[in-house]
């Protein structure tokens, strides 16, 4: 688990999109063409060019009032990272800083990480055939800077710092919110053995567009446990088979030419 994490306190988020634009700007990601479909939330999905988006979720309450929840969503940098387990090419690794990053050079474009991620945050670039996602601003971290989303956030909804300190802060904040009648909870301590993006939520995770009980998919576990270790054997076996097949093919070719 990383020593430094981001705490996303959604109770302080007012949906200003500073984080969304800061991520685009720092990483020089192109804008996508979007349409207004009835929500302030745009772009609608994560992609190779959208690594962070702000969720806007409206819920009607029984008392006739409306809750409008806003939160930064993006890669959670999980300890039990599904993407890392899914990747057959060893392109996804954990940095010294504890972040989960994709090495685009090694990426073979198989999309396994895209489908494995329980948060659906990994994007795929069809032009270059590479998977891309939030880097936790790793290039900023190694220069002693905080991630650009945390820097941009005006209210302190996103803060970056020592994991223990931020967990303490999160616990206190949850108590503070509960005292004010909110169904507050922490999200990201136990989930996936802990995520470097830790959340304080004022309600259940589904209300924010987060999965209630995120898991590494069973298929990925099986793949990771059984088939991935075997992949080297499979490569060798296939290579051997092809080589063996080549000798036999040559004989057949010669035989055919001989017949003519």
């Amino acid at each position: 688990m990383a020593n430094s994490i981001c705490l996303i306190d959604t109770s302080k988020c007012m949906g200003c999109r500073g984080c969304q634009v800061a991520c685009k700007q720092w990483n020089q990601l192109p804008a996508e063409e979007t349409a207004f479909t009835g929500s302030y939330e745009n772009p609608p999905r994560f992609s190779a060019d959208t690594w962070l988006k702000v969720a806007f979720k409206e819920h009607d309450r029984e008392d006739g009032n409306v809750d409008w929840y806003m939160a930064k969503l993006g890669c959670m940098h999980c300890t039990d990272a599904a993407c890392m387990q899914a990747c057959p090419a060893g392109a996804i690794y954990r940095s010294d800083e504890g972040t989960v990053n994709i090495d685009e050079v090694k990426c073979i474009g198989c999309n396994y990480c895209v489908t494995a991620c329980p948060f659906h945050v990994v994007g795929f670039d069809r032009l270059t055939n590479k998977a891309r996602k939030c880097t936790f601003c790793h290039d900023r971290l190694v220069s002693g800077l905080e991630p650009s989303c945390a820097k941009a956030c005006p209210t302190g909804a996103i803060t970056f710092g020592d994991r223990k300190q931020l967990i303490d802060r999160a616990v206190n904040r949850v108590d503070y919110l509960k005292a004010r009648g909110k169904n507050a909870q922490i999200y990201g301590i136990d989930e996936l053995d802990g995520t470097a993006m830790l959340y304080v939520l004022a309600d259940n995770p589904e209300k924010y567009g987060l999965p209630a009980d995120p898991q590494v998919p069973v298929q990925t576990r099986i793949w990771n446990a059984i088939f991935k270790p075997l992949r080297l054997f499979v490569v060798v076996a296939v290579a051997f088979g092809l080589w063996a097949n080549r000798s036999q093919t040559r004989e057949i070719e010669q035989a055919k030419r001989g017949e003519k």
């Binding site: 999109r17 969304q20 634009v21 804008a31 996508e32 063409e33 979007t34 207004f36 745009n42």
Partner: peptide, 11 residues
């Protein structure tokens, strides 16, 4: 572009 992406149309 990044602002238009976030809020693309009159509503």
């Amino acid at each position: 572009p990044w602002l238009v992406e976030a809020m693309p149309e009159l509503f």
